[in-house]
Design a protein around this nucleic acid. Structure first.
Length: 1127
RNA sequence: GCUUGGGUGGUGGAAUUGGUAGACACGCAGGACUUAAAAUCCUGUGACCUUAACAGUCGUACGGGUUCAAGUCCCGUCCCGAGUACCA
């Protein structure tokens, strides 16, 4: 009987599929275990040998837990949107020839061939309308929610509307800071559009303006985690920044919870760290700096100085004024007659818009507003306070009179106005131009260094840049702003260290020292973080230091430590100096003190900033879940839930329209109720994967996304396996959605996965040759004596390849910039030797190329320069390099073989040569799961040999024959055999529990080696061994299990129990060491006490030999461990 | 730069709480079986020195330290991989 892995594996794979052996039962009497792999995006190349690493590990765990009596959920699905070959469609607009079904079928075929125990009754595809119906449903829930800061959780939007109706908007409700304050009455008076716009500031899924990563080549926006090195992760196209109206997810509302939750879950530290960094919480304070020179409106050019209205609302306000001009109160008219036409020496305006308000009377010069409260306005006191606060923010002082005051005592009113006018010097009187007073708010984590501020820098996008820039600097600043906006992300990242900026000509006043401080624009300040402005402390911040050096600005030292003129001193320790009231304090104390002072002077307040940005959710792509929103009168509405799914419509082309609209704009007659436009962007790839783990629990439910009972039973994932590259993308989003669903009461846990393991990456080994760029007929060739010489071809050669082994030659050509790296398919390379014939079959366009190697020149299948080919050696060597496995690098190794159309040959994989069990064991044997390593097959024979050896235990025929039927005896096992077995059970259990799969494979080898030495063929030993091995090598163990007479699958056989009794030793071989150096062993009974051991050891002949007559200073005896004698 | 993981034979890697460094496997060398090959089995295999044998010295990137005892703990240095990048 031979170990025929091919037939065995096929037989069991078919039987498992037919009998649905691994379908999860809804058995809530058993303890549950949920083990999940991140599902793949089945792109064209199929699984490569790196993929199964994590799947095999999780399959081992799943199978192990089944043996342990758990009800195991172990499903698999596909991130199937945008398949197949999205890139192809983006470029051509055509649907690619390989279908999604074909792609997925190939994956499924490979999964089956490796013998995974997935429950295929629960296969998810994110692109299936039955699935994305629920993705859309969750989107609607998110859209209809807001984040309540008070209860610190998401709530239905209705509760916010109720709040608004009851008491208007107060900062308590604010999720984003720049929202309007308004009264309940205002709310009721708002139009539907206004209400909708306001609510958008609170919805967790919202439509808002934001700078996004725009990828022109793909015609879509990308999330931060979809951009790598300034180019798109999928496709590698350049990305630029663009201000766009976009659907976004308010993940920032969850920033603190996402951070705190990390402490509760068992994920790797590196992964938690990258999430912490990405969330980027930093504590600091805001500080407002007042601006000194406001350029006058005329200096600024475009605008009239009296135009103080918010431009967005200007038209509306104007109309309002026009409509309300007539019904003025008597009192207002009376007062107007006395202040108009510069009667008080200053110009007053009537019914003048400020921001979004309309002031009754206003004097722009004096920043003074006079409000008349009366019957017409009939406002509440509370509302007046709000209004005053807002107007104050615009820099105006507000004085109020009632109608009665004016009617009864107008003289007194006018006197008050005059006094107020005199008391508020106009900017001109203060020697300055301009109108409304501006402040620049900055965020800093080092308020202690405030006396070290020598300039303030604004981001180019900062709203004040335009307003404050002095005319003589305007041209340069404008040019700078435009230039930095048009720079691509890649360019921006490329010269991070390059300083650039412009002086605006304006200054602020230092709030403590009163010094004038210049304002600059610089793109090292990011618009999206903090306030988009920084107080620059070049002495103690590296970036500010660079900027100061470049522009020759003063560098002040305010923390003792080291000289700051040449290099900044960024450390957060030391004593303060040159800092007025902070002098002598330690940095920490100084920070505290400064915040106190800032808050006391009302210049700002302590604040926490997060680096995390809201997640852009809309994609201008075809493939993705349609966003279930339609627009009615410009107002977005969620579709009714019972009308879901909103199915992706047919389009003629998968490209944006000529006007740059997303592809969905091409869909004909695609309208809600035939009337209303649908949202045309689609959801990003991460939408479907943010909740899929819940759908697996209740795959086929068509009433809810998953039944509450099922969710309560399965809870969150016990073990989640996936790559660490998802740290700042998927793994953040899935936590966010889970927290949201918890807030809504759909699940009762915050975190999607209790434990998470990152499997390492298996890298590929690429084989490279080099293509010279120039199409000349010459090439550098190594001469027999080793020199390089330019050698002419006599033939007409279009392309010249250079071998990877010709190191000098390559260096020379590289220096000449005359070299392109070409990856060649690895299966046409053996031991770095390129098979040129196959290469030409693979790339027929190169059929006229010449191949220059150290040995000579190879051309048109013939060697043409024989003087270089010594000994007739025509080898053309490649250069190997370890790289990520990818289709484009032609270095993909698939676990199973495939037919290569180009060279018309079958390329075998590991499974074809050694079988799936060997593949599984070998991938585990390679090393620790988390480690990345290049794929090599060096050790595979060892693992395969182990399986053959195992097989032979069951058919103990004379060595060398390997034939005979299963021959197992029922005899009582010997002590040594039981010891081997139980030692193995113990080790394997420990190894699995700590995910140390490589060592368990070793332990199996040791076990089989020992049993072979013992010539053990006893059922009582071999049966339990099979069960412990079956998670790793399911096929061979099933087959042997069956041959032993079992009818049931081994998959559910109970895991053997470990019995300590078999391992109890009578003796222990003590290592005897002298001064820590091991010299010899003494076998001693374990029953001995420490003094008895010492007694025996000291009497030993060998001990005397090493003591050389000296008396030991000390004897250390650790029972069952070691004896150390100190001489 | 920052964060993080790591550095052990010719190779992949073991050594779980400080207690015999190099498990297990590959490779290599020698041998058995064979007409031969494959397969299988046996022996050896960190380096150095030495031998008939025993024994000895040095060894976990480098330099220090703690300890009876350090691959493991502490301090400093160097190198490699991964992530991230002007986050004030």
């Amino acid at each position: 009987m031979e170990y025929n892995f091919k037939d065995i594996e096929k037989k069991w794979q078919q039987r498992w599929a037919k009998e649905k052996t691994f379908a999860t039962k809804n058995d809530s009497t058993k303890p549950k275990y949920y083990v999940l792999d991140m599902f793949p995006y089945p792109s064209g190349a199929g699984l490569h040998v790196g993929h199964p690493l994590g799947y095999i590990a999780s399959d081992i765990i799943a199978r192990y837990k089944r043996h342990k009596g758990f009800n195991v959920l172990h499903p698999m699905g596909y991130d199937s949107f945008g398949l197949p070959a999205e890139q192809y469609a983006i470029q051509t607009g055509q649907h690619p020839k390989i279908t999604t079904e074909q792609n997925i079928a190939r994956y499924r075929e490979q999964f089956d061939k490796i013998g995974f125990s997935f429950d295929w009754d629960r296969e998810i595809r994110t692109s299936d309308p039955e699935y994305y119906k629920w993705t859309q449903w969750i989107f609607i829930q998110i859209f209809n929610s807001w984040y309540n800061r008070k209860t610190d959780k998401a709530e239905k939007i209705e509760t916010l509307i109720a709040e608004f109706e009851k008491s208007g908007n107060s900062p308590v409700n604010a999720v984003c800071e720049e929202t309007k304050t308004f009264s309940a009455a205002d709310w009721k008076a708002f139009s539907e559009k206004e209400k909708s716009d306001l609510l958008m500031n609170y919805r967790i899924a919202y439509l808002g303006e934001a700078y996004v990563n725009w990828c022109p080549a793909m015609g879509t926006v990308l999330a931060n985690d979809e951009v790598k090195d300034g180019v798109s992760e999928r496709g590698g196209y350049p990305v630029e920044r663009k201000l766009m109206k976009q659907w976004s997810m308010r993940i920032t509302a969850y920033a603190q919870r996402l951070l705190d939750g990390l402490d509760k879950i068992d994920w790797t530290d590196s992964l938690k760290d990258s999430q912490r960094y990405w969330i980027g919480r930093s504590e600091g304070t805001s500080v407002r700096f007042s601006l000194i020179p406001n350029p006058s409106p005329k200096e600024k050019g475009a605008k009239q100085h009296w135009q103080t209205a918010d431009p967005k609302f200007y038209e509306e306000l104007k109309r309002f004024v026009r409509e309300n001009k007539q019904p003025q109160t008597e009192a207002e008219d009376k007062l107007w007659q006395l202040v108009r036409n510069n009667q008080l020496g200053v110009k007053f305006r009537r019914q003048h818009p400020i921001g979004t308000y309309i002031a009754d009377f206003i004097c722009l010069e004096k920043n003074l507003i006079i409000e008349v409260d009366g019957e017409i306005h009939n406002r509440t006191n509370e509302y007046d306070e709000n209004r005053t606060a807002v107007l104050n923010k615009y820099g105006f002082k507000v004085i109020r009179f009632t109608n009665k005051q004016i009617t009864n005592n107008i003289e007194e009113v006018v006197t008050t106005i005059k006094t107020e006018c005199a008391a508020s010097p106009s900017p001109k009187e203060r020697g300055l131009g301009g109108e409304a007073k501006h402040t620049i708010e900055v965020f800093t984590t080092r308020p202690d260094t405030i006396f070290g501020v020598s300039f303030v820098t604004l981001a180019p996008e900062h709203e004040l840049v335009d307003k404050i820039t002095k005319p003589e600097f305007k041209a340069k600043v404008d040019a700078y702003v435009v230039a930095s906006k048009s720079r691509s992300e890649r360019e921006r990242q490329a010269d991070v260290k390059k300083v650039s900026g412009e002086f605006t000509g304006a200054y602020v006043i230092h709030p403590f020292s009163g010094k004038q401080i210049p304002i600059y624009v610089g793109d090292y300040v990011l618009a999206g973080y903090g306030t988009g402005a920084v107080m620059a402390v070049p002495g103690h911040d590296e970036r500010d230091h660079r900027f100061a050096k470049h522009f020759g600005l003063p560098i002040l030292q305010v923390v003792e430590g080291k000289d700051v003129q040449e290099e900044s001193y960024d450390a957060k320790e030391g004593k303060m100096m040159n800092s007025d009231f902070l002098n002598g304090l330690e940095v920490k104390a100084a920070i505290k003190k400064t915040i106190e002072e800032i808050e006391k002077k009302n210049l700002g307040k302590g604040k926490i900033n997060f680096r995390l940005r809201d997640a852009v959710f809309g994609r201008q792509r075809y493939w993705g879940e349609p966003i279930p929103i339609y627009y009615k009168d410009g107002i977005p509405h969620a579709m009714p839930e019972n009308e879901l799914p909103l199915v992706l419509p047919e389009v003629d082309k998968y490209l944006p329209t000529e006007d740059g609209e997303p592809p969905l704009a091409r869909a004909k007659d695609w309208k809600y109720k035939d009337k209303y436009e649908y949202e045309q962007t689609t959801m990003p790839g991460w939408a479907g994967s943010s909740w899929y783990f819940l759908r697996y629990m209740d795959m086929h439910n068509n009433k809810v996304f998953a039944d509450k009972k099922q969710i309560d039973y399965w809870q969150n994932i016990d073990l989640y396996l996936g790559g660490s590259e998802h740290a700042t993308g998927h793994l953040l989003y899935v936590r966010f959605w889970t927290m949201f669903l918890k807030d809504m009461g759909y699940v009762n846990f915050d975190e999607p996965a209790k434990k998470l393991i990152n499997q390492g990456m298996i890298q590929g080994v690429s084989e490279k040759i080099y293509l010279t760029k120039s199409k000349t007929n010459t090439a550098w060739v190594k001469q027999a004596n080793g020199d390089l010489q330019r050698d002419s071809f006599t033939d007409d050669v279009a392309t010249v390849f250079v071998s990877g082994s010709t190191g000098n030659l390559i260096q020379k050509l590289k220096n000449d910039n005359d070299l392109t790296e070409i990856n060649v398919p690895i299966h046409i390379v053996k031991n770095n030797k390129l098979d040129i014939k196959s290469f030409l079959e693979y790339f027929p366009s190169y059929k006229d190329a010449a191949f220059v190697s150290e040995g000579g020149i190879f051309y048109k299948g013939e060697q043409i320069k024989n003087r270089f080919f010594e000994n007739g050696d025509t080898t053309f060597y490649t250069k190997s390099e370890v790289e990520k496995m990818s289709k484009s690098k032609l270095n993909v190794i698939t676990p199973d073989g495939y037919y290569d159309e180009k060279i018309k040959a079958f390329v075998p994989g590991i499974i074809d040569d050694f079988g799936a069990d060997t593949l599984r064991l070998y991938e585990m044997f390679l090393g620790p799961l988390e480690l990345s390593k290049p794929w090599n097959t060096n050790g595979i024979t060892g693992v395969h040999g182990f399986l053959k050896k195992l097989w032979r235990l069951f058919s103990p025929s004379p060595a060398g024959e390997g034939r005979g039927e299963v021959a197992i005896v029922d005899a009582e096992p010997a002590k040594a055999e039981l010891k081997t077995l139980h030692k193995t059970i113990k080790k394997i259990t420990e190894d699995i529990e700590r995910f140390s799969f490589n060592t368990s494979v070793s332990n199996f080898m040791i076990c089989v080696n020992e049993l072979t030495d013992l010539k053990c063929n006893k059922r009582a030993i071999l049966e339990p061994l099979l069960v412990t091995l079956s998670p790793y090598a399911p096929h061979i163990t099933e087959e042997l299990w069956e041959k032993l007479g079992h009818k049931e699958s081994i998959a559910f056989a109970p895991f053997p129990t470990f019995n300590e009794a078999y391992l109890v030793e009578d003796n222990f071989s003590y290592p005897i060491s002298f001064n820590g150096k091991m010299r010899f062993n003494i076998e001693l009974p374990l029953t001995l006490t420490v003094p008895e051991i010492e007694n025996i050891v000291m009497k030993d002949v060998q001990t005397h030999k090493y003591l050389e007559g000296k008396t030991p200073k000390k004897v250390i005896i650790v029972p069952k461990k070691i004896v150390n004698i100190v001489v």
